[in-house]
Write a protein that binds this DNA or RNA. Structure first.
Lengths: 203, 203, 203, 203
DNA sequence: TATGAATGAGAGTTCATTCAT
DNA sequence: AATGAATGAACTCTCATTCAT
């Protein structure tokens, strides 16, 4: 509508943040491959030159975007989980990983990983071993306080991570269709089977 | 006269098959994104024109190739499984899905899916509902013959599919590292927990 | 005038030659820096894609063009010189290096050298040590047959090369203006002073 | 308040001079082509905006820088030469043109000329006709005082200029390699041959 | 049926210049 | 006087597709 939004100057950090905000929706819609620097520029309301001024290139934009996105979602979640009893924290984390709103996260995640957006393994390692460690620690804590029973906490955590990944992937794929509720139910069933925990919400 | 003998003329179906044979090795090495029509032409020993003559485009080549590849792997496997007792057939299928040699399959599979190589959902649907149905039927058969105990065969099958997907994905990703043996052990543990089956090989 | 020249197919070597022919005029007019792949495409009457199909990139086009150009000019010249008496051959070579038509050659040469169009030193080395050797051999031959007197043939050749380069550069630069005739006269004067030879044409 | 102290305000002429000082080192290292306005800004410790405020553009910066640079080198040299006997002054000038430290000068010079950094011919004309005139005047003075013998002072000066240019070019090019000493020896040999002067240092 | 030269849109990146602050 | 964010045209190169042969 506006003829020209006029050139608004922003400090680098602000502009970077504004751009990064625009990316996930784009990637969620068109995929990493289909998201060019010109698309990002249009979505962010700036010129391509502005993007390469504030970022080293498309790769950095995507990588940063993903990192920001993941941190924004998981960090508060982890804190909320830490405030709960181990069994409840575990349930919260697993259920939240598969709820309706996480779709863009998973899409971004799988696509970035596949495209090798990260040259270094830092982020990947961080995300995965971090995620795995959080689950394992919660299982251990649950075992310690007697709310969970589990012979092999490390293996259990690995299976939970894989199950969540697989369910998320299937939901992303869309065939066969699986609702968020179904996915969460699946992971809760597995958790119950593996740790003797009954569903906290089912009480 | 010419030093280079003209290429042999082949009926379409023959030529198509010859081309499709050359693709998986290529994709396994360079990925779907890195495999161009020129690469395929060179690997198949034909010209690019020949490819677009026999196929509608690069997408069709990749899609067909994947379908052929998967069928070549899973069809005999299914038959072997069908010849066994349900519990053993189930174990065979799950273990085979994660053994060392399946890496190229998984790579091809994830990449093609991600890149949206299939416009129609036919292949995907076929693969996934087929795969899911096979597992479910085996679980049902095992319950029927008393070798397995399972309240929800459909849900169990869904969880097994997801777990296998997740484990394969993690193996592909490489962080944290997971051996084929570990992956198989994980899925066998889950199977035992969910169906009361003990590992056939562990007897 | 023609709406579209229609797409004419040419064997690679033919097309390459056609493209290479178009380059020197372009570079002579706009310089290496100002000559983009689009300019070359337009001048050669093909699309940019055609250029990158037949060449690995802009660098190769420029490098090849220069090599072809230099060879086309100097090779016959060398042969003609070889057929003459040493003193006359030397004179022919020096005079021809500075005649009117060599301007594009020099332009191409200086610009390509400066822009580092050649990564390898092959071409440079070939051109310069070859050129230097030819002159030196002629001086030596002239000394041998008594038509030239020269204590240091190698040094004399080096000075002649430098003088020709410097004169060509000045003509290219345009300030102060120097005609081809003046340049040739200068190099003949130097030759006479350094070898005791009088001008063959001046007799 | 701010940690980073605001840049000192400077009168235009002061700021211009400060910037121009930073350029030659940059160009000597990265070449004219590789020197962008951002590089200059960084090297001079100012922002890009400051550069375009004080200069009309990058061309002007390079052109000015070259002019300053050349003047700084040659003006004192000319004065020193003027204080000597003509023959010795001539020798000083020629030898100094080719000594080891002049490499950056020549590089700057050739690159700027090639890139057409100067739109006007002012600087070029100044440099070249000035240089030529200085040499010619020294030859004339040498002839007048009997220390040199030369029938055509103007032509001799032209040849000396060309020879120096050619030798400098070859040294810059690096193939075949030529030391500063060799280059100076060549020009002295030529000088001796053309003016009957023996080397002042050889006495 | 087979070829491979030709195409051109689109990719990411560079960079001198502009101009609001 | 000084800044640095913003611009957009121009660059080279990629590549699936087209089509004359």
């Amino acid at each position: 509508m506006s003829a020209r939004p006029a050139r608004r100057r922003q400090p680098t950090e602000v502009r970077r943040a504004m751009v990064l905000e625009a990316v996930p929706a784009l990637v969620s819609e068109r995929g990493v491959r289909g998201t060019g620097i010109r698309d990002i520029a249009a979505a962010a309301g700036v010129s391509v030159g502005t993007l390469t001024y504030h970022f080293s290139g498309v790769r950095e934009i995507l990588a940063e975007s993903l990192a920001v996105q993941l941190a924004a979602y998981y960090d508060p979640l982890r804190e909320r989980a830490a405030a709960l009893a181990p069994r409840d924290g575990l349930d919260l984390l697993l259920a939240a990983s598969l709820d309706e709103e996480t779709r863009p996260h998973w899409r971004l995640w799988f696509e970035c990983w596949q495209d090798g957006v990260w040259d270094d393994e830092r982020s990947q390692h961080e995300r995965y071993t971090g995620w795995h460690a959080v689950l394992r620690d919660l299982v251990l804590a649950g075992v310690a306080d007697g709310s969970l029973r589990c012979a092999d906490p490390d293996g259990t955590a690995a299976r939970l991570v894989a199950l969540v990944d697989g369910l998320a992937l299937q939901r992303l794929r869309g065939v066969p269709p699986m609702s968020s509720e179904q996915a969460v139910a699946h992971v809760r069933t597995a958790l119950a089977d593996w740790t003797g925990s009954s569903h906290p919400t089912g009480e």
